[in-house]
């Protein structure tokens, strides 16, 4: 089920306001099939709001979006069978065991009984929890919870995966193996859309959107971003993503500054 032109996620002027506050302001982008696309920006930039709109958890105030070729406004139910979503909270039932969590989400996703067993075993193996099938989730470490949450989110093998700050609160080793997993999913044709505020993590993405104050300020591969933007630094030193980001953000703040003063 691929959208024409191999576009998995497409947003056009997507906007979300909360009262007077514009959390996401006319954001437009396309994510290609099988791509690892990252939304990079500080906290409060509108990353989570965007991902929540694309998952159907939040209605957009204006603009359009299609996910897996389905209109977010009119075909939300079709969208939901084709996406997986994991939030930074690794939302699992802590008082249930590993197995019970998997069984529950498998049941809610109505995985055909023929596939159920296989998917369950896959999720347990992937999360490295073969010896802890009957352990309550509350007793698991952050890294294990993260992988189990991911497993539960993709039991139904969705072609598109949304990850909201997926590596927050986990140690570097867990983070590393988590990325291996994401690459293998992406290699298998799964589109991955994730948000992060870690610069090093952003480097792993195929393509990045830099967001600040609800606006998409730049887009491209990490290489393109670093090459394409003139960064005022000593010559001969290659700019990092952080340099690119900071210079963009400072530019925006300078532009917004006088306005803020007039308002104040």
């Amino acid at each position: 089920m691929t959208a024409p032109g191999g576009i998995s996620v497409s947003a056009r002027d997507l906007t979300r306001r909360f009262g007077d506050f514009v959390a996401v302001n006319r954001v437009t982008f396309d994510v290609r099939r099988g791509e690892v696309f990252g939304f990079l920006g500080p906290n409060g930039a509108g990353k989570s709001t965007t991902i929540r709109m694309l998952c159907g958890l939040l209605a957009p105030t204006a603009g359009e979006a299609t996910v897996a070729g389905f209109d977010l406004r009119t075909q939300a139910e079709s969208v939901k069978t084709r996406i997986g979503y994991m939030s930074q909270r690794f939302s699992l039932y802590e008082d249930l065991t590993v197995e019970e969590n998997i069984d529950f989400f498998g049941g809610i996703y109505r995985i055909p009984s023929g596939r159920k067993r296989e998917r369950k075993e896959w999720a347990i193996r992937m999360a490295g929890l073969s010896d802890h099938v009957r352990t309550r989730v509350a007793h698991l470490s952050g890294g294990w919870k993260q992988r189990l949450a991911l497993g539960c989110a993709i039991l139904h093998e969705p072609p598109i995966l949304f990850l909201d700050e997926p590596t927050s609160g986990t140690d570097p080793i867990s983070r590393r193996s988590f990325w291996d997993l994401i690459y293998s999913l992406s290699g298998g044709g799964t589109t991955v859309f994730l948000t992060t505020h870690h610069m090093d993590e952003a480097e792993y993405c195929d393509r990045l959107g830099l967001v600040y104050r609800g606006e998409l300020v730049a887009m491209g591969s990490p290489r393109e971003l670093k090459d394409g933007f003139p960064v005022e630094r000593a010559e001969g030193i290659a700019p990092t993503l952080e340099d690119v980001f900071v210079s963009l953000v400072e530019g925006m703040d300078r532009a917004a500054g006088p306005v803020a003063e007039v308002r104040g």
Binding site: C55, L57, G84, Y85, S87, S91, C152
Partner: peptide, 14 residues
């Protein structure tokens, strides 16, 4: 509170 409501709502459950 624990976020599982959101997790369920992204599934096709009505």
């Amino acid at each position: 509170e624990i976020g599982t409501l959101e997790q369920i709502l992204v599934t096709p459950i009505t």
